[in-house]
Design a protein around this nucleic acid. Structure first.
Length: 837
RNA sequence: GCCGAAGUGGUGAAAUGGUAGACACGCCGCACUCAAAAUGCGGUGGGGGCAACCCCAUGUCGGUUCAAGUCCGACCUUCGGUACCA
């Protein structure tokens, strides 16, 4: 049963290494193909069987492209900054750089053992100063840019028009407010035990582990991704991405159109501005709600309500996101009246103001006009607080049950009565615009990106502050992460870097400065790594202009990685790319042309692999038992790449048997099987199955239908066993088809066949349609759509001859007997259907 | 709730609107063997029939069509994402 895979695989891996078989070509006149995997975080647990799934698929494509004569860029690297290494350091005192290096070495060893055709000379590591130099450099591009909403692009901050009356500190603040990287006091998820702020997406994970997370406003670096909301949305149209991922990004960006409406406030000159998608319900407003954090709450709250309002605001601040979600699920609304009134812009009516935590400060203007008749949430609130409900839209058909949030006809809305909802919206907006009490507005759910972390193990933010608090960008990059033995956060909300005064404080040209102690989030390094691969050793630039232009032409040709990155990583990378595009550093609008997500591989029990379930499959064990080629082939044979699928140790045996069968077919008992290579026992049959296989495998690799490509190769091998002799030509052609899938075994057979050079650079076979032409076919005869007979007929038979031949078949004759044929449908060279009464 | 993906043999799965279940796993049988394993060859959706054949079958119910796993409508189930976004 065995074939000597261990020996073969070791031999060829060493050969490829020594020979630099997969070194990327530098000839920019050749057609290029850039095929990229999402680079991994090198965790201490080592490679998971899920990693090689996508990696094998891209490797197959990369290998085929090389054989087709493309200049292929197929690199690998490490997304190596991250919290686990830092936490480990806090527990053990071992520097994260040390564990990270160990983990990388282990990952690299495991990947090499799988025979991937990466150009290891281009390996990158986000924690290397040579790399994060440019992560910091790109951060400074954000810092030194502003977004010109008229030209719809980022421009250098030096081109920002600053009002002449602003001088000194005021001028500086004006500029700071326009930077695409800016500091803001933001409510963040503070975890006292970890001594750090968590990203929204991290909160649940830590709460589950029993950590306490509360919201607390802190000084944070932000990236103004919201400036790009519209472009991030519209440019999705040109991407060859899974529809689901595009939808996810659309929802995340969350565009909605409506209007801003300005309400006056009784007894003041203040304005309360709200955003609404339903300006047509303006006459139905019976109260208004501000987010508890809304700045106007301070000034508007009546003396008599102050205590209650203050208590409510405090209670809200202590609520975690989880609490809020639970409230939302219960549909219970809380809130308090603030004792002030707005003035309705159309009717002049007095409208009571409330604060309630169902209104979020982070969306729209942080305040809403409440229309209980036509909004579920407002309705629930009105019910609880005994507020009037005023219907202003009725359903076009049937009864209108309140709350009614659908489109209909306007009622109780003086001059707008009878208008359909879309028209009512337009008319009311036009009216508001004329009266200067409102305007059309497009709003996005997307928030600015909270970009600072209170961690040691991350890229330092290259900004310093002088005594007056003025910001200075570090010119001398990289700004190195200082050595440290103390990885505990300062506990004050600053990172462990704050514990290193000799790094934090410095003097330059006689002036004293203090460095920023926040570091960047893990997303930073992964937001541009695909660019670095184009020119990974460039010391001057993130990549040379020529290399970027060549390798990124049209974007990365194929990008494969987990669906869990459908939103954040892929949105952040698109955002960074667009900034670089605006500033002229990259030549395409979008970084990733075609994207595919590999499905999750489940444990044998059909549940997610996890240590606690004990259903984890370790790639090292599988490779030791069956070899890398079997591992690769099995993961591709399991099912469609994008699909979630369970591991099966039975099925992998089947794949192993297939490869052993290939080995024996060619190499018999250790030496070349001369019988196989002898003149074909059936020339026609050999050519037919061979060219079918060339066609199917070639096409299936293009669509990443790798499971069916393998099926076809199995069919070929079964046929070769049956034929016994297929001749040298067919034998070596088939091995070239197998090579991208099972590269080690293919190299071994290739060299045994006496072929020169690595099969990795052999030419990809072309199928010849003439061998696929059949002289006859099995005709299917249906009566009323049911099969009633079959017969073999010559290809190209006329419809009339087809019909008479069909009528001649016994079973058909019997079935047609005594029935009148009303219609005959012939599908050429395939089937015939008699429609009978 | 909303958005997305998917429901096909005992199992993983194939199938430009035109022969449902390719290819594998498992199982059964045969050959080789003293025997077993390995290997090779054959069979294998369910039901009926000695047989030729017949009936049923792609989550459910309808529809379009000469013809539906595939297209359309409603529903059920599972998985993933998201959620007081005004």
């Amino acid at each position: 049963m065995s074939y000597p895979f261990a020996e073969i695989e070791k031999k060829w891996q060493e050969h490829w290494d020594k020979d630099q078989t997969f070194r990327t070509g530098e000839d920019f006149s050749k057609p290029k193909y850039y095929v990229l995997d999402m680079f991994p975080y090198p965790s201490g647990a080592g490679l998971h069987v899920g990693h090689p799934e996508g990696y094998t698929a891209t490797d197959i494509v990369a290998r085929k492209r090389r054989m087709q004569g493309f200049n292929v860029l197929h690199p690998m690297g490490w997304d190596a900054f991250g919290l686990p290494a830092e936490r480990y350091a806090m527990q053990t005192g071992i520097h994260p750089a040390i564990t990270t290096k160990q983990n990388i070495d282990n990952f690299r060893r495991q990947l090499k053992a799988l025979g991937f055709s990466y150009d290891w000379s281009r390996e990158i590591d986000t924690t290397s100063p040579d790399y994060y130099k440019f992560t910091q450099w790109i951060f400074l591009q954000f810092f030194n840019s502003w977004y010109d909403t008229e030209r719809k692009k980022a421009r250098p901050i030096s081109e920002l028009k600053v009002p002449a009356e602003l001088q000194g500190k005021e001028r500086e603040e004006f500029i700071a407010k326009h930077r695409l990287a800016y500091i803001a006091n933001m409510p963040v998820n503070w975890c006292a035990e970890l001594g750090t702020v968590l990203a929204n997406e991290e909160v649940d994970e830590w709460v589950e582990k029993g950590y306490k997370v509360e919201r607390r406003p802190m000084r944070q670096w932000m990236l103004r991704i919201t400036a790009y909301a519209e472009r991030l949305l519209t440019d999705l149209a040109e991407l060859d991405w899974p529809q689901g991922t595009i939808e996810l990004q659309k929802n995340w960006i969350g565009q909605s159109t409506g209007a801003l409406v300005h309400f006056g406030i009784e007894g003041t000159h203040d304005k309360l501005t709200v955003f609404t998608t339903r300006p047509d319900t303006l006459y139905g407003v019976t109260f208004m709600v501000l987010a508890p954090e809304h700045p106007l709450v301070e000034t508007l709250t009546a003396e008599s309500r102050k205590a209650e309002v203050e208590a409510y605001r405090k209670a809200t601040a202590l609520k975690t996101d989880l609490d809020r979600q639970l409230d939302a699920a219960k549909k219970e609304k809380t809130g308090v009246m603030i004792g002030a009134h707005a003035i309705h812009p159309l009717t002049g009516e007095k409208i009571p103001l409330y604060i309630a935590d169902y209104v979020l400060m982070g969306y729209g203007t942080g305040a809403i006009m409440a229309v209980p008749a036509h909004d579920e949430r407002d309705f629930a609130f009105a019910q609880q607080f005994g507020i009037a409900v005023k219907q202003v839209v009725k359903a076009e058909t049937g009864e209108t049950e309140l709350p009614f949030a659908g489109d209909g006809l306007a009622v109780n809305s003086p001059v707008f009565d009878g208008l359909k909802t879309p028209e009512a919206k337009t008319k009311i907006i036009a009216h508001l615009e004329k009266e200067k009490t409102g305007e059309r507005r497009t709003q996005y759910k997307l928030r600015d990106w909270l970009f600072s972390r209170q961690r040691y193990w991350g890229e330092p933010v290259p900004i310093s502050f002088d005594d007056e608090g003025s910001m200075v960008a570090e010119e001398n990059l990289p700004l190195l992460l200082p050595e440290s033995q103390n990885f505990q956060p300062s506990g004050t909300g600053e990172s462990a870097l704050a514990n290193i005064p000799e790094w934090v404080n410095f003097e330059r040209k006689g002036k004293k400065y203090r460095r920023e102690t926040n570091t960047m989030p893990q997303w930073a390094g992964s937001s541009w790594y695909y660019l670095r691969f184009a020119d990974p050793h460039n010391k001057e630039r993130f990549a040379s202009a020529e290399a970027e232009k060549y390798w990124l032409a049209g974007g990365v040709d194929l990008y494969v990685g987990g669906g869990e990155h459908a939103v954040l990583h892929l949105l952040y990378a698109r955002f960074w790319h667009k900034l670089l595009y605006d500033l002229g550093y990259v030549t395409t609008k979008e970084p990733f042309k075609k994207l595919v997500h590999q499905g999750i591989i489940l444990g044998e029990d059909g549940s997610k692999m996890s240590k606690s379930r004990g259903n984890v499959i370790n790639p090292d064990t599988v490779v030791a038992e069956y070899g890398a080629d079997t591992f690769r082939l099995y993961e591709m044979f399991m099912g469609p790449l994008e699909q979630m699928k369970p591991w099966s140790s039975k099925s992998i045996e089947g794949i192993y048997r297939f490869l052993a069968r290939v080995y024996r077919l060619y190499l018999g008992e250790g030496q070349l099987n001369q019988k196989l290579l002898a003149a074909p026992s059936d020339e026609k049959a050999t050519q037919k199955v061979l060219h079918q296989t060339i066609k199917k495998v070639s096409e299936d690799i293009e669509t990443l239908s790798l499971n069916t490509a393998i099926s076809q190769m199995m069919i070929f091998v079964n046929e070769a066993y049956r034929l016994e002799s297929i001749g040298n030509e067919a034998a070596q052609t088939f091995i070239r088809l197998l090579a991208p899938f099972a590269p080690h075994l293919s190299e071994e057979i290739w060299s045994a066949l006496g072929m020169q050079g690595s099969i990795a650079v052999a030419s990809w076979p072309q199928h010849d349609a003439k061998y696929l032409v059949e002289s006859d076919f099995e005709a299917v005869i249906q009566i009323n759509g049911k099969i009633r007979g079959r017969t073999r007929l010559a290809m190209g038979i006329s419809d009339a001859d087809f019909e008479s031949a069909a009528r001649g078949v016994d079973t058909v004759q019997a079935a047609l007997d005594g029935k009148s044929v009303k219609k005959v449908i012939v599908v050429k060279n395939k089937m015939i259907n008699f429609v009978v009464a």
